[in-house]
Design a protein around this nucleic acid. Structure first.
Lengths: 138, 138
DNA sequence: AGCAAAGGTCTCTATTTGAGACCTGCACTC
DNA sequence: GAGTGCAGGTCTCAAATAGAGACCTTTGCT
């Protein structure tokens, strides 16, 4: 029996072009722009917030009601992250008490295309995944 | 000045068809199939693991080297989650010491389409987001 | 004066993550 | 035949993050 099993690893490439950027030497994972965006855009709550805002602009408390199990803290933080990235807009109306409305920017709208594709994939494959989970005995 | 600012909320719909499922009364957010899948599929590490496996099948320690800042613990957990959902396969080779290879299943392959779209979106809009972050003064 | 309302913040606790030591089983060296 | 190395994990403990919910602020209404 061989001592070292062959590492038939993608050293020779998986047929996808050259070595990806993030594999090149001297690449700092913590500084990866794609990661830093995905961490906001593909995080648990932000996806749900974006799905809500895709229905239409909404105010803070409305979002809180729409996402019954989010905490104020995480909603605030998620909204700030998305605002910071220019994905949503925050508008304060000068009423008493003041109202704050959140809505997708054009950039945010453009994000919904791929994001909805992912959500649709989840919905479409929910059944087959449920079966896989049943079968799985560790 | 009006006391109650108008809640021009999507009560009347945002022009997207009927009320979404997750807004219907009696819907339990914790039991949402889409959420339960997204929590695995769109989580920080699983996305990166999947991107790695999209290059080609790889073994545990190879993944560990490829993702220099993941901990053994999270790698194991991420791989288990994906395996449980039928998105990746785990094959043990009977060598000494035993080798374990992970690879995308057909289901996993089908996931890469929307996932890569999201990654591509991040890459494409990295610049404009970087500018937005600069501008943002809270 | 006292209360209510929107949109937060603050504090305290519970859950997740991360770092890294340790485990297992066998082939190989000495 | 004791010691060492390796793959692929698990375990423990500390640090970071999330959640629950009290509290804050400003102004209009009663």
């Amino acid at each position: 029996m061989t001592r070292l099993p062959r590492e038939n690893l993608p050293e020779g490439m998986g047929g996808h072009g050259g070595t990806p950027v993030w594999r090149q030497p001297g690449f700092d994972p913590h500084d990866c722009p794609v990661r830093n965006i995905l961490d906001h855009v593909a995080a648990k709550w932000t996806v749900l917030i974006l799905l809500e805002l895709h229905i239409g602009p909404q105010r803070f408390n409305a979002l809180l009601r729409a996402l019954p199990d989010i905490s104020r803290r995480m909603l605030t933080q998620g909204l700030r992250d998305l605002e910071r990235d220019g994905i949503i807009d925050r508008t304060v109306f000068d009423t008493r008490p003041p109202a704050v409305e959140y809505r997708l920017t054009a950039l945010g709208q453009s994000l919904m295309q791929p994001l909805l594709a992912l959500v649709r994939w989840s919905a479409d494959h929910g059944d087959v995944i449920a079966v896989a989970r049943q079968r799985f005995r560790p």
